[in-house]
């Protein structure tokens, strides 16, 4: 038996909106730790890892570890039917081939339940090694989204370079080239508006903008984004989910061979 009650239901709505275009089908894993997911896009270029910790739920009952295969587009369709202020409860019985999403309005005057069919998904769980990153950039998530969107109108790939000068995002395309440099800036009114760069080694890596633009669908989840880079390793683009966990996107670089 599984019963997870999330008072801030809008978080789950935003999570689905952030990953449904990158991943079609995925197994949601439920354990005493929390509600999590790890899935690759169909080309195996990017990987998404989601964690919503059990402590973040108002009620969290998960009698045994359970893996539920879901079509993310269908799940998003159902969650779109929940109001932004609704409380969402996820329910499943042991051995059932369905999951139920229950939506309660804040005043309890409207209660809906949506039952979705589960699916069998052959998924490969990958071990993500702990890494020390050469450079970690924290910046406003809206700024990162703007940069990815702007550069994708010029080129298909972005080179992200971190030096002591700052973080540079560059692209080239048929019509020309573009460079955007963000310098460390901690003298801002709100801490979330800061750009903070921690650099051990200079880094320069090239990525497909198509994917970084998918990642920025998570912008509504967090006002800041953390980009962790090491030469010749996948970049990690992390959006923290307030007091609950995170959505992390890993993207394999393009490498000169």
């Amino acid at each position: 038996m599984l019963e997870l009650r999330l008072v801030q239901g809008s978080l789950l709505k935003k999570v689905l909106e952030s990953i449904k275009e990158l991943v079609n089908d995925a197994n949601f894993d439920c354990s005493s730790t929390g509600f999590s997911l790890q899935a690759m896009d169909s080309s195996h270029v990017a990987l998404v890892a989601l964690l919503l910790r059990s402590e973040g739920f108002e009620h969290y009952r998960c009698d045994r570890n359970l893996s539920m295969g879901m079509n993310l587009n269908n799940m998003a369709k159902m969650l779109k039917c929940a109001g932004n202020d609704d409380i969402i409860t996820i329910k499943a019985d042991d051995g059932s081939d369905t999951v139920t999403f229950m939506f309660e309005s804040p005043t309890q005057d409207k209660i809906s339940d949506f039952e979705m069919k589960l699916m069998d998904i052959d998924s490969e769980h990958l071990g993500i090694p702990e890494a020390e990153y050469d450079a970690i950039v924290r910046m406003p998530s809206a700024e990162f989204a703007r940069i990815c969107k702007d550069l994708s109108s010029i080129g298909d790939t972005v080179v992200i370079s971190v030096t002591k000068e700052g973080v540079k995002f560059s692209t080239k395309g048929d019509i020309g080239a573009a460079n955007i440099v963000c310098r460390q800036n901690t003298t801002v009114d709100k801490p979330d508006d800061a750009t903070v760069i921690e650099m051990k080694e200079p880094v320069s890596l090239q990525f497909a903008l198509r994917y970084t633009n998918f990642f920025t669908k998570a912008t509504p989840l967090s006002s800041t984004v953390t980009i962790s880079l090491s030469n010749e390793l996948p970049v990690v683009v992390e959006y923290k989910i307030a007091e609950m966990g995170y959505v992390r996107f890993y993207l394999a670089p393009k490498i000169e061979e």
Binding site: V45, L126, G127, P234, P253, K254, I255, E256, E257
Partner: peptide, 14 residues
């Protein structure tokens, strides 16, 4: 030549 690496060349099945 620039090649797109696969995530599977960095992370392995558990």
């Amino acid at each position: 030549m620039i090649r797109q690496k696969s995530i599977l060349s960095f992370f392995h099945k558990t």
